[in-house]
Nucleic acid binder design. Structure first.
Length: 435
RNA sequence: GUGGAUGUAGCUCAGCUGGUUAGAGCACCUGGUUGUGGCCCAGGUGGCCGGGGGUUCGAAUCCCCUCAUCCACCCCA
C-alpha cells in the first residue's frame, strides 16, 4: 500500500495553484488598499494560547485541536484559527506602541480535527485581518466592507453579510443567565444536546436545527433585547454605516459564532450554492481578547475567510482567474547534431528573462510541434540542418503560422521585440478583474 | 461524533442477476507528412477493478473488515 495524504488534506497541483495565486494576490492587494501589513506567525503555538483565547468550552478547543508534545514535553498545538496567534504576536512585539490601531493581515493554513466533507478539511487556509486598537463602529464597518471588497475583486457575486450583536462583558452575563433559565424551564422540548448547552453555553442552542428545539428557540429571549445601551448604539451605528457604504446585509438575532472571544459585532458572509458549507467568511469584534492574553487592553475587530470556500464559490459561479504567462518559446530540435545549438538558445533566452524550453528526449518534430500547440506556447524556434549551417533557426509564430529565418544570436533581440503581442503572453501585466 | 452513498486506466465513466486475455471517450505516445502544430485516419502505452480477508471450480461482480471521498446532521472557513 502506498503512502497516502492524511485524511482531510489535499495537494494543490500546478493548474489549480494558478487559482490559488490569483486569490492570494487579490487578498494582498486588497489588504494593501486598506493599509494592512502582513504578519507571519508560526503554524504551531503553545496550547495554552488557544485554550485561553478561543475558549475551553468551544468545539474547536475541546475536540478539534492537533495537540502534541515536543521533545522537551511542552504542549504545542497546530493553530486552529488565526486570530489568537496574531494577538499573541501583537502583544509579544509591542505592536500597540508602533502604530495606533495596528492593521495586520495573514494568509496561511489552519488545522482542525473535523470530519472531512466538501469544503471542510483538516487543513484549510485562511486570509484574515485584524484591526487592533479601534473601538468605533466605523472600524467594524471597514472590516466588513474590506471583506466584501475582496469578494468583489474576485468576481464573486451574491455574497452578503449576516450580522448580530452578542453584547459585551457587561451585558452578556445577564443575558446568558436569562437565556439559561428560560431554556431550563422548557427543557422537556429540547434535544439532549441543547439541554446540555442550556447549562454550559446557552448561546449555542441557536445553532440547533432540530424542529423541536426550533420552536423553543423562536420564543427565547434574544441578545438584542438584552444588550446594554452602549452595545445597542454601537450596533445601530454599524448598520447605518454599512447602509451608507451601499452594503446590503441582514440581521440575524440567532447568529452566534463558535469562538468565545467575540463581543458586540459578530458576522458571517454566506454565498449561496455551497450546501451546508455556505459560510465563506466570518468575523467580529473581540474587545477583551488582547487583555485576556496578557496585553494592554485594546478593542479589536477582524475577519477570516476560507480560501477553499472562496475557490468553491468561484468554481460554481464560473469565475475564472486571469491567465498567467507560461513558456514563451519552445526551442525545437530533432537532429541530435543540433542539440548544442538548442541548449545555447534556451540558455540565452532564459538569461534574458524569456521563458523557454526544449525537448531533448528525442520526441519527433511533429510531436514537439503538437505539444507546443496544445500548451499554447506562442513561439517556436526550429533549428534544423540547413539553418544551422548558416548559424540560424526559424522563428515561428504559432498563432499565425508565420515563420522566418533569423540568426541564432539575434533570437533574444527578436523575441523581446515581439513578446506581448499574442493574447495571454507574459510581460503584459494582467489587469485586475476576472473574466 | 451520528446516519447514508460511492470507490474500475492520468480524467469522466460502462461492465446486467459471479464465467474465458477488463472496455469506451478524453488525455498521452508513434505513424500517415526524410524538416513543422491545430482537423482527420491508423496503431500503441497505460488497470493486481481503493486495500485486506472470506465464499466459490471460478470474484470487478457476493459477504465481512478496513481506508478514502461525497451527502445530511454537527460544526464552521
Amino acid at each position: 500500500m502506498n503512502i497516502q495524504r492524511p485524511r482531510g488534506t489535499f495537494d494543490v497541483l500546478p493548474d489549480e495553484a494558478a487559482r490559488w495565486r490569483f486569490v492570494e494576490r487579490t487578498a494582498r492587494r486588497v489588504a494593501a488598499l486598506y493599509g494592512f501589513g502582513e504578519i507571519r506567525t508560526p503554524v504551531f503555538e503553545s496550547t495554552e494560547l488557544f485554550v485561553r483565547g478561543v475558549g475551553e468550552a468551544t468545539d474547536i478547543v475541546s475536540k478539534e485541536m492537533y495537540t502534541f508534545k515536543d521533545g522537551s514535553g511542552r504542549s504545542l498545538t497546530l493553530r486552529p484559527e488565526g486570530t489568537a496567534p496574531v494577538i499573541r504576536a501583537y502583544i509579544e512585539n509591542s505592536l500597540g506602541r508602533r502604530e495606533k490601531p495596528a492593521r495586520l493581515y495573514y494568509i496561511g493554513p489552519v488545522f482542525r480535527y473535523e470530519k472531512p466533507q466538501a469544503g471542510r478539511y483538516r487543513q484549510h487556509h485562511q486570509f484574515g485581518v485584524e484591526l487592533i486598537g479601534a473601538a468605533s463602529a466605523f472600524a467594524d464597518a471597514e472590516i466588513i466592507r474590506m471583506l466584501m471588497h475582496f469578494y468583489g475583486e474576485l468576481g464573486i457575486r451574491g455574497a452578503a453579510p449576516v450580522l448580530n450583536s452578542v453584547g459585551c462583558r457587561r451585558c452578556r452575563p445577564g443575558y446568558n443567565a436569562a437565556l439559561g433559565a428560560y431554556l431550563l424551564g422548557k427543557a422537556g422540548g429540547l434535544c439532549a444536546d441543547c439541554r446540555r448547552r442550556a447549562e454550559t453555553n446557552p448561546l449555542r442552542v441557536f445553532d440547533c436545527k432540530q424542529p423541536g428545539c426550533a420552536a423553543v428557540i423562536a420564543a427565547a429571549p434574544r441578545v438584542r433585547d438584552h444588550i446594554c445601551a452602549p452595545c445597542g448604539e454601537h450596533f445601530g451605528e454599524l448598520l447605518s454605516l454599512l447602509a451608507e457604504a451601499g452594503i446590503s446585509f441582514t440581521v440575524r438575532p440567532e447568529l452566534v459564532r463558535g469562538i468565545d472571544y467575540y463581543t458586540r459585532t459578530a458576522f458571517e458572509i454566506v454565498a449561496g450554492e455551497l450546501g451546508a458549507q455556505n459560510a465563506v467568511g466570518g468575523g467580529g469584534r473581540y474587545d477583551d481578547l488582547v487583555e485576556m492574553l496578557g496585553g494592554p487592553p485594546a478593542p479589536a475587530v477582524g475577519f477570516g475567510t476560507g480560501i477553499e470556500r472562496v475557490l468553491m464559490v468561484m468554481r460554481e459561479q464560473g469565475v475564472a482567474e486571469p491567465a498567467e504567462g507560461g513558456v514563451e518559446v519552445g526551442v525545437v530540435v530533432w537532429d541530435p547534431a543540433a542539440l548544442a545549438d538548442g541548449r545555447r538558445a534556451v540558455r540565452a533566452l532564459r538569461d534574458a528573462g524569456v521563458a523557454a524550453e526544449m525537448d531533448a528526449e528525442g520526441t519527433s518534430l511533429r510531436g514537439q510541434m503538437r505539444r507546443l500547440d496544445r500548451r499554447g506556447v506562442p513561439f517556436a524556434l526550429l533549428i534544423g540542418d540547413s539553418e544551422r549551417a548558416r548559424g540560424a533557426g526559424r522563428l515561428k509564430e504559432m498563432r499565425t503560422g508565420e515563420e522566418r529565418e533569423i540568426s541564432l544570436d539575434r533570437v533574444v533581440e527578436e523575441l523581446m521585440g515581439r513578446r506581448g503581442r499574442p493574447a495571454g503572453a507574459p510581460g503584459a501585466p494582467a489587469a485586475g478583474g476576472a473574466g
